[in-house]
């Protein structure tokens, strides 16, 4: 098979800086480097997880890929077309194929629209269906996500968090997309409901052949749903690996710390395992540390880390890491 064809989205050296404006004239004095030079590929039909602490740029990455934000620098190539330089009016055909599910099911649905209209809106915008056909499509979408057609005439406030998230998913599915960005789709839900939504996302992927970019901070859920995972820290990707590999053999000190911070629901295990506590907090992305951005919290940091930014090294088997410690070992 052609390898290039297998990749649905290719991100190359993507940067997204937000200007910080100061003073009366609103001069741009500094930049928040939310996403700073990241590259990755997502293969067709896979789930690619993106994890990191709040403020590491994972949401910005998702939104930049779908062009909700303009790209500062770098390329996003979706199925052979470069999205990053596309004009706004040409984007509509791209947005028909890429959809998004948002974190907060309470804020992402218009409370004045009926569920039917919310789910039908993408159909109207892209002029995909009208009249009876539109109605049928809405009913079938609601059925796909486990709601019934009676729900179409109700308003979002009549639904629980999990049901609202289902409505959001139905809306994303309306245009029959290939690629869906799930931005923390389950963090606002209760534990017992999270599993329902995750299972549904998995089923839909199998049925419709979807590709997901799954953004979350809950590592245990990300590991469960993803095929490959990228770990982000302060606007950069520090490690990418298959999800099993990442959990069995975390290599970057940050990944190790992140994994050991996750509480395990098993008293004996959690009491006996050693944990690496990360001291301090994430530095400001306005003035990230020079060299390796993680060095301020890394207990293995040495001289080189201060001066040189580590580059991504391949450890084989799709496992890449950006850390100077790897050079030392060789």
């Amino acid at each position: 098979m052609n390898k290039e064809k297998d990749v649905i989205i290719k991100v190359r050296n993507l940067k997204k800086y937000f200007p910080v404006k100061k003073g009366f004239l609103k001069r741009k004095v500094q930049y928040v480097k939310a996403v700073d030079d990241i590259s990755f590929d997502i293969k067709r039909g896979e789930t690619f997880g993106l994890v990191g602490e709040s403020g590491c740029g994972k949401t910005t990455t998702g939104r930049t890929i779908i062009r909700l934000y303009d790209v500062t620098d770098g390329d996003v190539i979706f199925d052979g077309t470069n999205i990053s330089t596309m004009k706004e009016k040409d984007l509509s055909s791209f947005r028909k194929r890429v959809q998004m599910i948002f974190q907060d099911p309470f804020a992402s649905l218009n409370s004045r629209m009926t569920v039917g209209d919310i789910v039908g809106e993408p159909l109207d915008i892209h002029k995909l269906a009208s009249g009876k056909e539109r109605q049928e499509r809405i009913y079938s979408l609601l059925k796909t996500v486990g709601l019934s057609k009676e729900h179409a005439s109700r308003y979002p406030h009549e639904f629980s968090g999990g049901q609202r998230q289902r409505i959001g998913i139905a809306r994303a599915l309306a245009v029959d997309p290939d690629f869906i960005i799930c931005d923390e789709p389950i963090s606002a839900l209760d534990v017992s409901i999270q599993a329902q939504v995750v299972n549904m996302l998995e089923d839909l992927q199998k049925e419709l052949g979807l590709t997901y970019l799954f953004i979350a901070h809950d590592l245990s859920m990300v590991r469960h749903i993803s095929d490959r995972i990228a770990v982000m820290y302060l606007g950069k990707i520090v490690e990418v690996a298959k999800s099993e590999e990442l959990y069995k053999n975390p290599t970057h000190p940050y990944t190790k710390a992140l994994l050991s911070a996750i509480p395990i629901p098993d008293p004996d295990v959690t009491h006996k395992r050693e944990s690496v506590t990360l001291e301090g907090e994430v530095p400001s992305p306005i003035n990230p540390p020079k060299g390796c951005t993680f060095r301020t919290r890394c207990k293995y940091a040495f001289e080189t880390c201060k001066n040189k930014e580590p580059s991504m090294k391949n450890l084989g088997g799709d496992h890449t890491v950006a850390c100077h410690l790897l050079d030392n070992k060789k």
């Binding site: 017992s192 999270q194 599993a195 329902q196 469960h224 994994l259 629901p265």
Partner: peptide, 24 residues
């Protein structure tokens, strides 16, 4: 039991389908 079954376990190698508690 339902709560215990619906959460993914990081420390166990297996990747099984989650068993949610149905309904609300």
């Amino acid at each position: 039991m339902g709560l215990l079954k619906s959460i993914p376990r990081l420390d166990l190698g297996e990747k099984k389908r989650l068993i949610p508690i149905t309904g609300t």
